[in-house]
Amino acid sequence: MHAIEIRETGGPEVQRYVELPDPQPGEGQILVELAAAGVNFIDLYRREGRYPLPVPCVPGEEGSGTVLSTGPGVSRFKPGDRVAWTTVLGSYADRVVVPEDKAIVVPDGIDLITAGGVLVHGMTAHFLANDSYPAREGDTVLVHAAAGGVGLLLTQLLKRRGVRVIGTVSTAAKEALARENGVDDVIRYTEFAEEGALAAEVRRLTGGEGVHAVYDGVGAATFDASLASLRTRGTLVVFGGASGAVPPVDVMRLLWGGSLTLTRPYLEHFRATTEEFEWRAGEVFTGILDGTWKFTVAGTYPLAEAYRAHEDLAARRTSGKLLLVP
Rank of each mutant, 00 (worst) to 15 (best):
V83M: 01
H126G: 00
F127A: 07
T114W: 05
G116K: 04
Y133M: 03
V98R: 04
L119P: 04
D81N: 14
A135M: 07
L112H: 01
V97P: 07
T87W: 15
P99Q: 06
I104N: 06
V106C: 03
S132K: 01
V97W: 11
E100M: 02
A129W: 03
G116A: 06
V97K: 02
S132D: 08
P134N: 04
A115N: 11
S132G: 07
G122Y: 01
A125P: 00
V74W: 13
I113T: 13
G116C: 05
T114L: 15
G122L: 01
P79I: 07
V83K: 01
V120W: 02
I110N: 11
Y92D: 01
I104R: 07
G116V: 04
V98I: 10
V118N: 00
W85H: 13
S91V: 12
V97E: 08
I110D: 07
D108Q: 13
G117D: 06
A129V: 13
H121N: 14
G122V: 00
P79K: 00
T114Q: 09
L128V: 01
V88W: 14
P99V: 05
D94T: 03
V83N: 02
P99G: 06
A93M: 10
T124Y: 00
T86E: 11
G116I: 08
G109Q: 09
G73E: 03
H121S: 12
